[in-house]
Amino acid sequence: MLIESVNIFLLALLAVTAIAAVRLRDLFAVAMMFGIYSLLAAVMFVLLDAVDVAFTEAAVGVGISTVLMLGTIGLVGRYERGSVRSSLLPLTVVVATGATLIYGTLDMPHFGDPTAPVHQHVAPAYITESPQQTGIPNVVTSILASYRGYDTLGELAVIFTAGVGVLALLGLRRRKRPGKEGVGQ
């Protein structure tokens, strides 16, 4: 019961942080809110038994993402201009989509239900066969590197490509800046 109450409390905090991030106009504060949001998500993952994921989220979401966003804000300016458009149309779209999705959840298996279809198929096989086949206690590692090695290779290729893309866009060498518009025209 304790876990459920902590769960409810954390999710409520997540919602508050996300809504605060929407309302703020100072991008520095928005980036900080996103850092808090990631940290709360990481705590949430520990609660939901996903320690590996929590580890990653704590290092990536709170550390690297926030530093990246601050770096960008340092380059492009800190304040968002007030929107001139009406927010009525986006709000309608969002509420309609959200209502549809909530309608969709009504058929979903309840949270933590051990008889849910997701717990019936491949996962039990991984858990029971992993010790004999790979000899590794951490099932997440054995699935990541062995059972789903192709998947991980593909993901690594995406990370590689993104890194190359950033290099192509920004470059690592110091720019010689002749004037303000040193960007190619």
């Binding site: 990246l68 790979t134 290099l167």
Partner: peptide, 27 residues
């Protein structure tokens, strides 16, 4: 399996850290 997983994870670690440092330096 053990050896393969160890090597593969090492490869993942090298690329991920190099990409992250590259991105930081670029920004």
């Amino acid at each position: 399996q053990h050896l393969g997983i160890l090597i593969v994870e090492f490869g993942v670690g090298v690329t991920v850290s190099a990409v992250m440092i590259t991105i930081f330096l670029a920004f």
